[in-house]
Nucleic acid binder design. Sequence first.
DNA 1: TTGCCCCTATCTGTATACATAATTTTGCCG
DNA 2: CGGCAAAATTATGTATACAGATAGGGGCAA
Lengths: 257, 257
Amino acid sequence: MDLDDTDNSASSAVRGERAASQTLRAQLMLRSLIIGGELKPGERVSELQMVDRLGVSRTPVRAALIHLEHENLVEALPSGGYAVKELSEPEILVAIEIRGTLEGLAARMAAERGAPADLIAAAHVVLEEIDRIVLPGPRPNGLERYVRHNARFHDLIVDMAGSDTLARQIERAAVLPFASPSALVPMEPGSVETHQSLLLSQFQHRIVLQAIELRQGARAEAMMREHARTAHCNLRRALIAGRKLAELAVASLSSNS
Amino acid sequence: MDLDDTDNSASSAVRGERAASQTLRAQLMLRSLIIGGELKPGERVSELQMVDRLGVSRTPVRAALIHLEHENLVEALPSGGYAVKELSEPEILVAIEIRGTLEGLAARMAAERGAPADLIAAAHVVLEEIDRIVLPGPRPNGLERYVRHNARFHDLIVDMAGSDTLARQIERAAVLPFASPSALVPMEPGSVETHQSLLLSQFQHRIVLQAIELRQGARAEAMMREHARTAHCNLRRALIAGRKLAELAVASLSSNS
DNA sequence: TTGCCCCTATCTGTATACATAATTTTGCCG
DNA sequence: CGGCAAAATTATGTATACAGATAGGGGCAA
C-alpha cells in the first residue's frame, strides 16, 4: 500500500514526524483535526472516513481513538464508535481547575521534598529568559517565545515533584485546548492588557520558585493554583473575542513533546 | 472460533460479564492478572501469550493494553510492546495524594456550587448505613459491607461536583491497587485497631458532608484530603504485614463499575 | 574458555477480511 | 402527502495474515 503522505490532507500536522509510527501519526493528526475544529464537536468520527483522510489503515486509527478517549477529546458512543467530545465552558473551567490543583500539588511536593539543584537552576534561567521578553515592554513576536518558555517552566515544576505518575496525570489534564498552560495564545500580541497579564504571570512564577526554594509548601501550592486560574481570564476573553480555536492547535500540540 | 470461556484460566474475573465485549473482558482480566500479582512487575506482557491465556484474539488484547497504559498499570517499552509497571511505594503514596487532592477538589466544588438535594440525601442514607455497621462494635464480615458503602459515599461526593471530567480523572487515579478508597481490605477484619480506623473515617465522612451542606468549601476540601491519607496508613500496615496484593483485586475491580 | 557474530525464533506493528449490528434510505401503504 | 417498515448500505468489533524488527542462543574463532 502507498504509505507516503503526498496526498494527505492533514499532513501539515506531522511535519518532521514521518519516521514516527502510524499510530502516533494518526493520534497527532486526529488531535489536530479535533482541536483545529475541522471535526465539529458531537460529530461522529467514522473510522473508514479517517482511513481515507489520514492515509493509515483502521488499526492505527482505532488505537489513536482509544488514546484520544483517555485524553477527553472523544467519547465512546453507546452504540459503538466515537464522537468528538463537546466541550462546554464549565467543563473547560473544571479542566483548568484540575490542572491548577495538580500543578499545585506538584509545587507543594517539590517544596516539601526539596527540589534537585539543577532543576532549580534551570528554572531560574528560564525565568530570566522570560524577563528579557516581558520586561522591555510590549513587543510583537514576543508572545510565542513567552509561550515556549512558560511551558518549559511548568514542565520544570512538575519535574521537581519527581513523580512520573503525577507528571502523566498533569499532562492528561492539560490536553484540552484551553486548559494547557500555553493557552494564552488567543491574546492580542501587542496590547498593553496582554503585557500586564504576562508581567503578573511572571511575578507568580518567581513566587512559586522562591517558595519551593524556601520549602514553603503551602505557599507554593496556593500560588501555583492561582497562577493556573490565569487561564480562566484567557478563556473568558477568547470566548468574548470569538471562535479562534484553530490558533490554539499549534500551541497545544507543541507543548506535549 | 470457540468463544465461550470454559477453558479460561482467568474467567473468575468476569463473572456475570460474559455479555460484555471482548475488549472489556480482556481489560478486566488483564487488570485482575496484574493486580492479583500473576503477572510480576517488570514482566513483559506478551500479546500472544495473553491470547492463549485470555481466550480472545490479539486485537482486543492490544486495545486492553492501551487502556491499561493510561491506567498506569502497564508501560510501553521503547522497543515496542508493554511491561507490567512496577509500583514503588513512593509512587503509590503519590497516587493516593493525587486521589485525595482531586476528591478534595470535588468536595470543594460541591460545597461552593451547592450539591443537589437528592445526592445529599443519598449520602446521609449511606452514612447511616455505615453507622449501623461500625457503631455496634467490631464484628466479622462487616468489613466488606463497609467497603461497599464507603465506595458509594466517595462516588456520591464526586457526583456532587457535577463534572464528568473530574469524575473521570478521579476514577483513573483510583485504579492503582492501594490508591482506591476501597483499599482498606488488607486490614484485619475483627481487630480493635481496624474498628477504630473505620470510626475515624466515618467521622471524616460526616464532617465532609456537613461542610458541603454549609457551603464551607475549604473545610470540605481539607477534610477530604486528610481522609484520603487514611490509605497511607493502610498501605504502611499492608507492607509490614506482607504481600497480600491478591485480596485487593476484587475490591479494586468492583469499585469502578 | 571466553567473546563475538550470525542465525533463528518470536514478537510487535500494520493491514485487511469477515460477521454482526446500526443507520439510513427507499418504497409502499394509509 | 406523510409515516412506517424493510432492505441495503455502512459502521464497528474481532480475528488473522504478513512484514519488519528485535532479542536470544548457538557456534566458531582467538
